[in-house]
């Protein structure tokens, strides 16, 4: 046991666990509180201190949120978020796979130019160009539409960059063999490259799904119709203006519903998630 040299045992080990558990509790506390608030009645919250243990209003509050909500049924907002997140993730993966394939496996005039045009977009998040992008989307009549939510956020090169990196590591012999066999480029792409990219695609999908689901500023600008709100931006819209008291149980039930899908994705696909995270930041 060479490890015994450095690893603490006995009391030290307990302190290590204690420190970690305190950290985990601090990280968990806000979510625990939100969950408790989503299971009690409004009077229990507005007369502080609110209880720290769940009440019996779970079904009542979640039913109220999902079916009627405050401005729009939360079920509809969940659906909107799902369409947006899937659209962004799948759309980005498809266009990036195609363009990375073109850039890596073909030599054609203007290749370098396209390469640089695409990679310039790595630099500019949507937050920076909101006003003109809004005008473009409004010009196309895409306000309050799914395409308006999805397309502007697909216009970035992170995924193209990743697939290019991956294609560069694919052995040349495979393309060579395909060419000798007389396989057309798209056959090579479909039968060889795509199956090889499966894990990369899955890892990227996890990251992009969370990215799309958690968008806030863009949906806030272009969905003025409450029935088109996504759940993440819809929560803030549930707060009353002025001095009225917010309907906390319903708002907190909505918050829990808003974080559930991405959390499930992260926990159930932890390996892919970590891989995607590390890849996309390289």
């Amino acid at each position: 046991m060479a490890d015994g040299m450095v690893e603490k045992r006995g009391v030290g080990l307990w302190f290590t666990h204690l420190g970690l558990i305190i950290g985990v509790l601090i990280i968990f506390f806000p979510i625990w509180l939100a969950f408790v608030a989503s299971t009690v009645t409004q009077p229990e919250i507005v007369r502080p201190p609110m209880p720290l243990w769940p009440g019996d209003q779970f079904f009542e509050n979640y039913r109220k949120a999902l079916v009627s909500g405050i401005n729009a049924p939360v079920a509809k907002m969940l659906f909107n978020s799902f369409v947006m997140a899937m659209g962004i993730a799948l759309g980005k993966i498809v266009i990036s796979l195609l363009s990375a394939f073109a850039i890596v496996y073909f030599k054609f005039p203007g290749r370098r130019l396209f390469f640089w045009l695409i990679f310039l977009t790595l630099m500019l998040p949507v937050e920076v160009r909101i006003v003109p992008t809004y005008e473009v989307v409004a010009g196309f009549g895409m306000l309050n539409s799914y395409s308006g939510l999805i397309f502007p956020l697909i216009a970035s090169a992170t995924a193209t960059f990743l697939f290019r990196q991956f294609f560069m590591t694919v052995p040349d012999e495979l393309a060579e063999a395909a060419r000798v066999d007389g396989a057309r480029p798209m056959r090579f792409f479909w039968d060889i490259l795509l199956p090889m990219s499966r894990t990369n695609i899955a890892a990227l999908f996890v990251i992009l799904f969370i990215y799309g689901w958690n968008q806030y500023l863009w949906p806030l600008l272009i969905t003025t119709d409450p029935s088109m709100n996504t759940i993440v931006m819809g929560i803030k819209q549930m707060f009353p203006s002025g001095d009225d008291i917010a309907d906390w149980p319903v708002i907190m039930a909505t918050s829990i519903l808003a974080m559930l899908p991405p959390i499930i994705v992260v926990i159930s696909m932890q390996k892919l998630f970590i891989r995607g995270l590390v890849d996309s930041e390289k």
Binding site: G23, V24, I27, P30, I31, L33, A34, I210, W213, N214, Y216, V232, M233, I235, K236, I251, S255, A258, M259, P262, I263, V265, V266, I267, Q270, F273, I274
Partner: peptide
């Protein structure tokens, strides 16, 4: 596993919490 999942919580939702 216990520590990574708050990453999935949107900044706007974290704000509300």
């Amino acid at each position: 596993t216990l520590l990574i999942w708050p990453y999935a919580v949107a900044p706007a939702v974290a704000g509300v919490l």
